[in-house]
Simulated scan of single mutants.
Amino acid sequence: MSETRKVTIKAFRFNAETDYLPYTKQYEMEVGKDDLILDLMNRIKWEHDGSFSYRRSCRHGICGACAIKVNGKAVLACKQNAIELLDLFDNDITLEPSSKKRAIKDMIIDKSDFWEKHAAIKPYVVADVEPHPTHETKQSISEFNNFLDSDLCIQCGACHYSCPALEVNPDFFGPAAFAAAYRFTVDTRDTAGAERLELTAQPSQGVWDCVKCYECAEACPKEINPIEKIGKLHNMQFEQGIAESNVATRHAEGFLRGMKKYGYLDEADIVTYSEGLLGAAKHIGTAMKMMKSGKIHWHSGVPFIDSIPKIKNLDEVQKLIEISQTNKL
């Protein structure tokens, strides 16, 4: 079996100073079993076109500079094996910037929105420290483990530019900022946790606009799982009395209401509970489709009509909820 494979690598090309529209160029090369995506980019620049531009630095997967996308899949170029992606995409791959609409030159993008949102949540320990302390500030192992690896974020932006919520809502902080907000809010040395929770509770920019698609978890090269930290921020807002009653928080409450009452998810009740009967009226088209498919019935969500069958051993589910629930909604 050959150790190399001759393939055609496509690359997104664009120079904001000279080009009206982006275009794609093709480069033929031999790709070995140990080649990384960064090796392919280096080869394009060194052997084919010296104007090809991208960011790189450490080559050890810790600086985050070389984050790009390959056929829409977020990768760190210095960690991703090229043959694996060639196999995944049937030898047809295109190197793309993390965000095409923010492209400056080829793989280089303007990350100012990422850094502004990251800075907004105060990604550092806020504390009054004596100018000449007499002892260090200690943390227990359990306190450190409570970070849940969120301190391993390298700010590559892979999750940020894979987030569909942020793509349609420029005010949204994004998963990387939320992971940082969680990391410093749970830090026992920090005193600005309530302020961060207030920021992440705001409509449009906060965690309640997350659509739970898990794209951030798929994109993260350090396996930090930002969606887990977003869920933790949800709970902390309730626990500390910061969450306000609105459509988003009542939607979260609606899930628990159904499980307590029936052991099932009550889709119709979630809508009427979170938005009210008048608000639910705008979803009538979707409701009709759900009725046709048998997902809900005409009386679903109507007050005073108990239309959902209860599961067996519902009392056991209710006991589990009572034991595990850490706060009152």
Results as ranks from 00 to 15, higher is better:
Met259Leu: 15
Ala177Gly: 05
Lys212Trp: 14
Val186Glu: 01
Ile224Pro: 01
Ile242Gln: 02
Phe184Ser: 04
Thr185Arg: 02
Gly206Gln: 02
Glu215Val: 09
Ser204Gly: 11
Met259Glu: 11
Asp190Gly: 06
Pro170Tyr: 11
Ala194Trp: 14
Phe255Arg: 01
Gln237Phe: 10
Ala201Cys: 06
Met259Ile: 08
Arg183Lys: 08
Gly241His: 05
Asn246Tyr: 07
Ala248Phe: 06
Phe184Gln: 00
Thr188Gln: 07
Asn246Leu: 11
Glu228Leu: 15
Gly174Gln: 04
Ala180Cys: 11
Cys210Asn: 03
Ala176Asn: 04
Tyr264Glu: 12
Val207Leu: 03
Ala177His: 00
Ala252Cys: 06
Gln202Met: 14
Ile227Asp: 00
Gly193Asn: 03
Tyr262Val: 05
Gly258Gln: 04
Cys210Asp: 08
Val211Trp: 06
Lys232Phe: 12
Asn246Gln: 02
Ala192Phe: 15
Gly206Asn: 01
Val168Leu: 12
Phe255Asp: 02
Ala252Ser: 11
Ile230Cys: 04
Lys260Gln: 04
Arg250Gly: 02
Asn225Pro: 00
Asn235Trp: 11
His234Met: 07
Arg196Val: 14
Phe178His: 01
Phe238Leu: 14
Pro170Ile: 15
Asp209Gln: 13
Arg196Glu: 11
Ala243Phe: 09
Leu265Tyr: 03
Gly193Leu: 03
Cys220Leu: 09
Lys260Ile: 12
Glu215Cys: 11
Ile227Cys: 01
Leu199Arg: 00
Tyr262Pro: 05
His234Leu: 10
Pro221His: 06
Ala165Glu: 11
Asn169Val: 12
Glu228Val: 13
Thr249Met: 12
Lys260Phe: 08
Ala177Thr: 05
Ala248Thr: 06
Lys229Val: 09
Glu218Cys: 08
Asn225Ala: 15
Ala179Gly: 08
Leu233Met: 07
Cys210Pro: 00
Gly231Ile: 07
Phe255His: 05
Tyr182Ala: 12
Ala192Asp: 14
Thr200Tyr: 03
Ala179Arg: 01
Ala177Tyr: 02
Ala165Trp: 08
Leu199Asn: 06
Gly254Thr: 01
Glu198Lys: 07
Asp209Ile: 09
Ala201Gly: 05
Pro226Arg: 05
Gly231Ser: 13
Gly258Val: 07
Glu253Gln: 13
Arg196Ile: 13
Arg183Ile: 03
Glu218Thr: 07
Ala192Asn: 09
Ile230Trp: 00
Asn235Phe: 13
His234Phe: 15
Lys229Thr: 10
Met259Asp: 02
Gln240Met: 15
Asp171Ser: 15
Asn225Val: 13
Ala180Val: 10
Val247Gln: 07
Phe184Asp: 02
Glu253Thr: 08
Cys220Pro: 10
Gly241Phe: 08
Glu244Leu: 15
Ile230Gly: 00
Val168Lys: 07
Asn246Ala: 09
Ala180Leu: 09
Val207Lys: 01
Tyr264Gln: 08
Ala219Lys: 01
Lys212Met: 14
Lys232Asp: 05
Tyr214Ser: 08
Gly254Tyr: 04
Leu256Pro: 04
Phe184Tyr: 06
Ala179Cys: 11
Arg189Phe: 14
Leu197Met: 10
Met259Tyr: 12
Gly241Glu: 11
Ala217Leu: 12
Thr249Phe: 04
Arg183Phe: 09
His234Trp: 12
Thr185Tyr: 02
Pro221Asp: 14
Thr249Ile: 10
Lys229Gly: 04
